[in-house]
């Protein structure tokens, strides 16, 4: 499916999707409440078949905090990038996509551990790298650690 059609398809599912400029991939910002249903549709519908989530990154844009999903279809060979954002830094919660792509389980635990993003309906929402009593989320831009990180 070419990019224009993919864009139309996406708008037909989520009318409020915004598109960002990107040379490489079609990038869409999705309202976070639509994420799970969109993910399911993108994976299951015949003309999209996004069956492979090859990267899930949590990003702190300082004003916003969010998750970037890189998707591709192994059968149709097209890519899409989905973004969800929120301004709520204290209690950042998104829907988990673990039931759609199993690989998300580890990715989401990593996002929780390092960026403090919680995922609803995740089967095992624990820290994955750091100790359970670690305070703060190191990859956030406002994370301060005077002992271990030397500011330049």
């Amino acid at each position: 499916m070419d990019l224009e059609k993919l864009k139309e398809k996406l708008i037909s599912i989520v009318p409020t999707a915004e598109f960002e400029e990107n040379k490489q991939f079609l990038t869409a910002v999705i309202p976070s409440d639509k994420l799970h249903s969109l993910a399911k549709k993108l994976k299951e519908s015949e003309d999209t078949l996004f069956d492979y989530l090859f990267c899930l990154s949590a990003v702190d844009w300082t004003t916003h905090i969010g998750v970037v999903y890189h998707l591709t279809s192994t059968k149709l060979n097209h890519n899409i990038v989905l973004k969800v954002k929120t301004t709520d830094r204290e209690n950042t919660v998104f829907d988990s996509v673990t039931d759609v792509w199993k690989t998300a389980e580890f990715h989401e635990r990593e996002a929780f551990d390092l960026m403090g993003i919680k995922f609803k309906n995740h089967p095992d929402m624990r820290r994955i790298f750091l100790e359970d009593d670690w305070i703060g989320y190191p990859l956030r831009k406002d994370y301060k650690d005077d002992v271990n990180i030397v500011e330049q």
Binding site: C55, S57, A58, V59, D60, K102, T103, F106, H107, E110
Partner: peptide
Amino acid sequence: YRFKLRSPNFINLGA
């Protein structure tokens, strides 16, 4: 600004 690595071992371990 953000340097996210998709490391193959981490993902393979999940399976």
